[in-house]
Design a protein around this nucleic acid. Sequence first.
DNA 1: CAAACATATGAATAATTGTTCAAATATAGT
DNA 2: ACTATATTTGAACAATTATTCATATGTTTG
Lengths: 123, 123
Amino acid sequence: MIEQQKYCDVCEVFNPDNSVVEMMKEKKLDDDVIYELSELFKTMGDPTRIKILYALKERELCVCDLSELLNMSSSAISHQLRILRNNKLVKFRKEGRSVYYSLDDDHVICLFGQGLQHVLEDR
Amino acid sequence: MIEQQKYCDVCEVFNPDNSVVEMMKEKKLDDDVIYELSELFKTMGDPTRIKILYALKERELCVCDLSELLNMSSSAISHQLRILRNNKLVKFRKEGRSVYYSLDDDHVICLFGQGLQHVLEDR
DNA sequence: CAAACATATGAATAATTGTTCAAATATAGT
DNA sequence: ACTATATTTGAACAATTATTCATATGTTTG
């Protein structure tokens, strides 16, 4: 076992004491959290939804506002808003036949800012 | 035109002066930036890649480290690393036959933290 | 109640995506 | 030169996704 030399200390499964694998595994996030985290980012990983969130950053808007603004069908917008709603990125308020959407909390804006910083970094 | 009552001030296309549409359109982000931003979030929107980034947060690791750590084939890991590389989330360094990957900058960690805050908020 | 409007929803379709498998490239040791 | 190891790559396949279309729900006005 020992004479079988390995070059990656973590791949070294024959020497548990020196293994980083276990260390990492202890520190690992709940699978639930990892899943939710990836769902959050996935939700923000679509141009249409980015545009919706960017618009809602300014003020609350109803479906037809967004539809007009982004030049897309109300149906398409509504579908995307449902995804944003399910992931708690937007909340809504009904007024007559209109439904006004707004950002659910300010984490979204922070994520936005951080993302922009990363994107605009090397230009 | 005027007698056609509308309930969403933004949808009101017949009165440009009072329209919020134009205002928003002026403030709108470059399509390039929106695209890149959504690509960034899309990149972070996968459980495997989240796990990779979370592991790299601690220290640099090579492909077989990650493969061992996440219990996945080197091929699968390599494919995901390519996506992370293309989106400038990780950088790499070659040493012998190994390729060590690490986080490209600390925006990733900030995004991580913000995302976690959002996810863990209501529990 | 009927007509118009705002939104939501389900099915369908085209496009994208993650993993697997097989094969290729590259580096190190014998 | 040969073998073992580390990584990359391309094709293939199943699964997911965004938009469109048609239709349904709910609300307001006449």
